[in-house]
Every structure is written in structure tokens, then in C-alpha cells.
Simulated scan of single mutants.
Amino acid sequence: MKADLAANPAWSGAPSQTDEFLLMFLRAEVFSPSAAANRYRKFWKAKITLCGEEKAALPIKFEDARAALESEFVQLVPGTRDIEGRQVVMIVSSNMDKTLERRLRLLSVWYVLLAALEDVETQRRGFCFVGYQKAVKRSQADPTFVKMVMQSLQGALPVRIGSINICYPPTFFRVVWGIINPFLHERVKRRVRVIPGTDAEVLGVLGAIVPPDGLPPPMGPKPKEFSAWLAEQAQKDA
């Protein structure tokens, strides 16, 4: 990977990185050096677009994305893993605040995932995404933003996608899916599960992947810990 980057460098302003940081990209690409180097280059291109060249070399801080993080549309679920040991992240679409600019919302996604990737086991095993769509309104749908997130997951962030579980898809889901589907890699499409039905039906299917008692409201009974996790992250950033 280092030889590949030496021959075709990433952004010239990127800070020198530790082997531990580069390992995240190798693990995301199942130790393919060329694919890992390519993802690393894309990471910096995407981060420049997201943060601006003057801030791209700096870590993303809680205060940079505070408003979007506190809306809790993207939530790490501390302590909960799927049956394969993957870190669970919930996407609560009804919490989406479209008055916030897309860049800020995307920054919050990056913040949560990069913080979770500080755990080596999450780097190795990846993520299980659970999308809660039950209370979402058509006015909250934002296919452009979904494409931005998927492009980050597929090609820039050092993330392994174990599964994406879309629960309670709304009636307009087909429209949104039709817009984002062409932008998804085939291997990502194979990891998408759409789970419609009643509470019992959805939790029955999802329960084979994620323990139902390991999910917080609005899906499960686990005490909500994301706010406390955010507070800890903010303190660390300070």
C-alpha cells in the first residue's frame, strides 16, 4: 500500500499517517493494497470537499457537526453488535432535519463512523446499519443526501458494510430506491435488506441479525445511550 501511495500520492496536504491509520483502509478492502491505496486517496478528496482544504487535515470535532449530531438521525448503538460481531448504527429518518445543510448532515455521519472506527474490532468486522423508516414523511426524503452518504461509505471512508437493513419502508420507498440504486456497487446491493410489515414481522426478521433487546427506542427497549456517548466524545474532543 505504501509503495502504491509513493507512486501515486494522495493529497499533498494530508498529514503523515501511522500504520494503524493505514490499516483501517487495508481492513476495509480485505487487505488488497491497491484498493486500500485508492480508497485512501478518495478519502482525502472527499474530506476536502466536505471540510474545505484549509480544514481537511484536521480531525472532525463534535462542535463541527453539533446541530446534526444532536438531531440523532444517525446513532451509534454502544455495546450492541449483530450476530457477526459488527457494530450497529441506527438511522432514524424521521429525525432528519432538512433545514440543516447536507454538508453538515454528512459531516455528522463521518464523525460517528470515524469515532466508531477507533475500535479495531469494528475495523475488522464492519458495520450493521439499521434504518428505521416507520414515521418518516415524504417531505423528509432526501435522495441526494442518501447518495452522498453511500458514496462516502462505498469509496472514501474505511468502512466495511456488513448489512444495511431498511425497516418499515414507506410507500414512496420505491421512488427513492430508484434514484439511489444506480449509484450502488453490486456488492453493496447484495447487503441491502428491505424489511416491511408489522412490528412483530419486522422484529422477527431483524431479530435473526440483531438482538431486538439490543436496540434503543423507537425500535427496541434498550436504554438510549447515544446522547451520553456524544457527551463523552465532546469531552474527548475538548
Rank of each mutant, 00 (worst) to 15 (best):
Y40P: 00
K222I: 09
A14F: 04
E20Q: 12
G207W: 00
L206H: 02
G131A: 12
A7D: 14
T171L: 07
T18D: 14
Y40C: 03
K47R: 15
G126Q: 04
P218S: 09
R103D: 14
K55T: 13
R125G: 02
R41D: 05
E29S: 13
S71W: 01
R39A: 07
I180R: 06
A115K: 15
P59C: 11
I91A: 05
L22G: 05
P221F: 03
Q75W: 00
K47Q: 07
F21C: 12
F129V: 11
P158G: 04
S227E: 13
L117V: 02
L50E: 08
A238T: 15
P169T: 09
S93E: 11
A234K: 15
T198P: 02
E101S: 14
R138V: 13
A68Y: 01
L107A: 11
N165G: 07
E232D: 15
L184D: 04
A37S: 04
S108C: 04
E29Y: 07
K134C: 09
V112W: 06
V88K: 02
A234T: 09
P212L: 07
F145S: 02
I60H: 07
G220R: 11
D199E: 08
G79H: 13
P78H: 03
T144S: 14
D142P: 04
D213V: 08
N8M: 09
P15L: 14
F173L: 07
L50T: 05
D64C: 07
M148A: 15
P221L: 08
S227F: 03
F73S: 13
A37G: 01
G197H: 09
T144E: 15
D64Q: 04
V77I: 14
S34L: 10
V149A: 04
L50I: 07
N8Q: 12
D213H: 13
V205M: 03
C128L: 01
P218M: 05
I60C: 06
C51F: 10
I195K: 04
K42R: 15
G220A: 11
L58Y: 11
M219R: 05
V130C: 01
E54G: 11
A6Y: 14
E225Y: 02
S108F: 05
L76T: 09
D199H: 11
A57V: 10
T171C: 08
M1H: 05
S163F: 05
V89S: 04
V136R: 05
A3S: 14
Y40A: 05
P169Y: 10
A3V: 10
A46W: 10
V88R: 00
L106Q: 04
F145H: 10
A35N: 05
T99K: 15
E20D: 15
L157F: 06
A35R: 07
N95A: 10
T144R: 13
R160G: 06
G79V: 03
T198N: 03
